[in-house]
Design a binder for these strands. Structure first.
Lengths: 227, 227
DNA sequence: TGATCGCAGATTGTTGACAATCTGCAATCA
DNA sequence: TGATTGCAGATTGTCAACAATCTGCGATCA
């Protein structure tokens, strides 16, 4: 795992930051795990300086935290923190919908339709493997189409943090067609140029994901642990 | 400017981060200015390592940015970025209102009333010097009373970034009593336990601040520069 | 037996030095 | 004269080493 020597245009710290973020978000370094600076430095063939700088950046992004003289640890979210993140995500996604309803060009609108059609297709075919990435790119497109990078950055930060919750990969959960029905409602509100309805639909879409999480968690708690 | 030697319980980096944040937010280091690592290190009597780590954290917080081999610069916001920040702030503040309307205890409600009364008092007396800090603590109390630290952190980050806009200190602007009328509307919606109305009132309060900024900026553009 | 103490190894916090890059100015040339 | 080149100083990027702190385990003692 050493892709240096190719670089010199960018800084070691920036490469490390991206690489470590990937490792954390993908779960390659598990939530709660301690991060050994020496080990990382050795692994990437660099010294501890750039590693520590990268970790500080990740700390500010909420992916790791540090305890003086103890080092860095991958953050682990409990259920309440996850719920808080969902609430903020919902508010931001609501703003995305509102913004699109006000500003979206016709090109953006047809692009949204295109995404919708592709997901409909996958949903009809019950092709989950196709649906999942389409769903991701739909949400990503929406956030970037708002033209508000502040909104996009904060939203994307929250999505990254969400990966630190123990119960990984809830997926769309509510069923493909149900999920896409919500998507359609969202896009239609935007097409209608109805900011209030769009905000409502977009925010509600996230809130439903939160409710699924809470419900799943509740159910798990009442079941015997099978680990 | 050296308040070390007292510490050892916390890390140099954390002290530097707070100190540098203060310097940036207060405008002591002007937006756009280049940050000299050596100078800072000398000023605080430490080496460049902790300084760089602190700057990385501030970079992730959006207060400074770095260009490879050129160093760190204090971020400077243009009008469009400021507007984007206001929009996100409005969405987050709206969530704060909505959350309070759902969850606020009676103790929180009466604390909000207390803030309101104090500001009314200052507004009646036209005592701007008293009103301003009261207004700040009102907003801060609201954000923390939501009990959602994710919301609080993101909101506070945006407030900090706002200081990087060139036109400093717009202040409440719309007049003390007008501003407090909005505050009253906000608190009443919370007291009524009306989440939708609270969200609306809270978000609108921020949006009005945005509008004042845009209006002031528009006016300035049409006037001859007197620098 | 059980708890406490203390040491050795491991790990982080911080530093100073060196290499690489950039900046500004002066000398050079068309 | 005006633009270009090439240095010298300044500044950042990275590293390796040292000091301070923590961790775990074994020895000691009641």
């Amino acid at each position: 795992m050493d892709q240096l020597s190719v670089l010199r245009t960018s800084t070691l710290q920036s490469v490390l930051e991206k690489e470590l973020e990937k490792a954390v978000v993908s779960g390659q370094i598990a939530p709660g795990a301690r991060v050994n600076e020496n080990a990382l430095a050795g692994q990437f063939g660099v010294s501890r300086g750039p590693v520590r700088e990268a970790l500080r950046a990740l700390e500010a992004a909420g992916l790791v935290y540090s305890i003086p003289n103890r080092g860095f640890f991958v953050r682990r979210l409990d259920l309440m923190e996850a719920a808080h993140i969902y609430d903020v995500r919902a508010a931001l996604f609501g703003l995305a919908g509102e913004t699109l309803a006000r500003n979206a060009s016709d090109a953006v609108l047809s692009e949204l339709d295109r995404h919708l059609a592709a997901m409909d297709e996958a949903a009809r075919a019950r092709d989950f493997d196709a649906y999942y990435p389409l769903n991701l790119s739909f949400h990503r497109y929406i956030i970037e189409a708002t033209g508000n990078p502040v909104l996009a950055n904060h939203y994307l930060d929250l999505v990254k943090q969400m990966h630190l919750f123990r119960a990984r990969s809830l997926g769309p959960g509510g069923g493909l067609s149900v999920s896409n029905a919500e998507h359609r409602e969202m896009v239609e509100a935007v097409a209608r140029r109805d900011p209030a309805a769009a905000r409502e639909a977009f925010a509600h879409h996230v809130i439903r994901a939160k409710r699924r999480l809470l419900a799943a968690e509740e159910k798990e708690k009442s079941l015997p642990r099978v680990d």
